[in-house]
C-alpha cells in the first residue's frame, strides 16, 4: 500500500516537473512562431541595432528599448542592492527578535501591493519629487522607474538575503567572536561571505523581477523611445512597449511580429541573467565544498 502511494506521489511530482519544463518550451515556441516572421518585413541586424522605433512607419530598431530596460534595471539594482543587503544584515544579525517579528512580515507584505498602485504612487509622488529635486521638465524619467522598481525588488532581495544570512551556522560566528572579532568584523569577513551564494540568488531574483516588470515602468518612465544619455530623461522599456502597443496591432502584421520579437529578446536576456547566476552559484559551491 505504502509503495503504491510512493509511486503515485513520484508520478505526480514527475508530472508537475515535466509540465513546468513543457510550459517554458511552449512559451518559447509560441514566441518564436509569432516573432520570427518579422524577418519577412525587417532584417535582424537593423532590428537589433537600429536606434529608431517608428512602428507605424515600419521602422523597428529596438536599441532604445533595450537600453531603456537595461538603464532602468541597472538603476534599480544600484538602489536596491545596498539598501536590501543592509536591511537583510540588520534583520538577520542586529535586530532584536521582536523587531524582526514585526519587520519581516511587513516587508514581505510589500511584495503583494499591486504594481498598478505603485504606478500611481510613482506617477503622483515620486515623479514630482524627482522633477523638483533635479529641476527637470518632466519627472517621468528612467530614475523614477528605477526607484519604483527598486522598491518592488526590495522585499524579494531582503527576504531571501535574510534567510541566507540566517542559515549560516552559529559555529562560524562563535569562531569569529572567539578570535576577538567585533560584531561588524564578523558580519563582514565571515557571515556575509558564507551567505554569498544565497545573497547572489536574492539579487538575481530581484533583477529578474525588475527587468520583467511592466505596469509600473509603463506609468512612470515617460515612454519616449529614444536612446537615453542620462538617467534623468524619459525612456521606454521593452515591456512597456509590448504592453502599450500590442492592442493596436493587427494580428500577423509586421508590427505584431516585431513586438513578439521584442519579447524574444526579453526572454533571451532574462535567460542569460539566470544562467549567469547559476554558473556563478555553481562555481562558488564547487570552490567551497
Amino acid at each position: 500500500m505504502a509503495r503504491l502511494g510512493d509511486r503515485i506521489a513520484e508520478g505526480l511530482v514527475f508530472l508537475a516537473g515535466g509540465a513546468a519544463v513543457l510550459f517554458v518550451a511552449l512559451i518559447l515556441i509560441f514566441l518564436l512562431r509569432e516573432g520570427l516572421p518579422l524577418v519577412r518585413y525587417y532584417s535582424p541586424i537593423p532590428f537589433l541595432t537600429g536606434a529608431e522605433w517608428y512602428p507605424l512607419s515600419g521602422v523597428f530598431g529596438i536599441l532604445p528599448l533595450v537600453l531603456g530596460s537595461l538603464l532602468v534595471t541597472a538603476g534599480a539594482v544600484a538602489i536596491a542592492l545596498p539598501l536590501g543587503l543592509a536591511v537583510a544584515i540588520y534583520l538577520a544579525e542586529v535586530a532584536p527578535a521582536w523587531i524582526k517579528d514585526v519587520l519581516k512580515p511587513t516587508i514581505e507584505l510589500l511584495a503583494g501591493i499591486p504594481s498598478v498602485l505603485l504606478g500611481f504612487v510613482g506617477y503622483a509622488v515620486v515623479a514630482t519629487v524627482v522633477k523638483n529635486v533635479f529641476g527637470l521638465p518632466t519627472g517621468l524619467t528612467a530614475l523614477t522607474g528605477s526607484i519604483m522598481l527598486a522598491y518592488m525588488a526590495l522585499p524579494t532581495i531582503i527576504s531571501i538575503a535574510d534567510d541566507a544570512i540566517r542559515a549560516v551556522p552559529d559555529d562560524f560566528r562563535h569562531a569569529s567572536y572567539a578570535l576577538g572579532a567585533t560584531r561588524w568584523q564578523t558580519i563582514r569577513a565571515v557571515t556575509v561571505p558564507a551567505a554569498a551564494s544565497g545573497i547572489l540568488a536574492a539579487i538575481m531574483l530581484g533583477i529578474g523581477r525588475a527587468i520583467g516588470e511592466t505596469m509600473t515602468v509603463w506609468m512612470v518612465t515617460g515612454n519616449a523611445a529614444v536612446i537615453p544619455t542620462t538617467i534623468l530623461q524619459p525612456v521606454r522599456t521593452m515591456t512597456a512597449t509590448i504592453a502599450a502597443e500590442m492592442g493596436e496591432t493587427a494580428r500577423g502584421s509586421d508590427h505584431y511580429a516585431a513586438l513578439f520579437a521584442v519579447g524574444i529578446v526579453l526572454f533571451v536576456m532574462t535567460a542569460l541573467i539566470n544562467t549567469g547566476a547559476d554558473l556563478v552559484l555553481h562555481r562558488m559551491k564547487k570552490k567551497y565544498e
Partner: peptide
C-alpha cells in the same frame, strides 16, 4: 573583544571559516 584576542578557543565541532 580584547579579552577574546588574548584567549584562544577551540570548539566541539571543527568550524574553519567556509569561505
Amino acid at each position: 573583544v580584547q579579552i577574546r584576542r588574548s584567549v584562544g578557543m577551540v570548539f566541539q565541532r571543527p568550524n574553519p571559516f567556509p569561505t
